[in-house]
């Protein structure tokens, strides 16, 4: 464990807690993409399949349970909670996210480190996580009025992957055999997708005006 990875995990934890807090306290999910949340639930479900077979550390297992629990409860809130579901703008959140799942699955069947069931699904979860934010970014551009909690959620989510890139550089420099191109490229693509959001987020923060993404 290094400081970059810890910072990344804490930022990731903060992003899901910010979202859960928003949905639970104001009983609204306006501006949140259910598609992105469903993709994240699939990402965690396929990434943490080894939670029962391989134990690494208390921290590792605890965080996996928190991420699984939070992502599925956010989906549950947005789909089934009587008050929250009414605030979900279904007409705007129209990204065909299943078109993201299939190519990621095919790519995982083609490019992976080992051709085993767990490894292919784990690789699939990496590819899917890289693109899971797309429905949310599209929704933000459509709804234009980004309330600061949703903006913070996306910002923290992008920041977590940015910290992970620093973690991979650190581990590559300090651990001789630590080379994982698939993880690195997927993580880099993911972080790049946030790049323009970060640019507009900082612009709005610097000029102290409402965050507006270009149409």
């Amino acid at each position: 464990m290094n400081i970059f990875r810890l910072a990344g995990d804490m930022t990731h934890l903060a992003s899901v807690l910010v979202l859960l807090l928003k949905i639970h306290t104001i009983k609204s999910c306006a501006g949140v993409s259910l598609k992105t949340q469903e993709l994240y639930a699939i990402v965690f479900a396929t990434r943490y399949l080894d939670i029962f077979t391989s134990f690494y550390s208390i921290y590792n297992t605890l965080m996996k349970l928190i991420f699984l629990g939070s992502s599925f409860s956010i989906v549950w809130y947005m789909r089934y909670h009587k008050t929250v579901r009414r605030t979900y703008d279904r007409e705007q959140d129209t990204f065909r996210h299943w078109f993201l799942v299939l190519p990621c699955l095919l790519l995982a069947l083609l490019i992976h480190e080992k051709f085993t069931f767990l490894e292919v699904l784990w690789t699939f979860s990496l590819y899917l996580e890289a693109v899971a934010i797309l429905p949310q970014l599209v929704l933000l551009q459509r709804t234009r009025n980004i309330d600061n909690l949703t903006g913070q959620y996306v910002f923290l989510l992008g920041g977590y992957r940015g910290f992970y890139i620093l973690n991979w550089i650190y581990r590559y420099l300090t651990e001789p055999h630590f080379v994982h191109w698939i993880t690195w490229i997927a993580g880099l693509v993911q972080t790049l997708l946030y790049a323009d959001f970060f640019y507009y987020y900082f612009q709005s923060w610097k000029n102290n005006k409402k965050l507006q993404l270009p149409a």
């Binding site: 995990d9 391989s54 690494y56 550390s57 590792n60 996996k64 784990w122 973690n167 994982h180 993880t183």
Partner: peptide
């Protein structure tokens, strides 16, 4: 392999 593996990452 676990040491150098990313499986210890979330």
């Amino acid at each position: 392999k676990l040491v150098g593996d990313t499986k210890d990452e979330l």
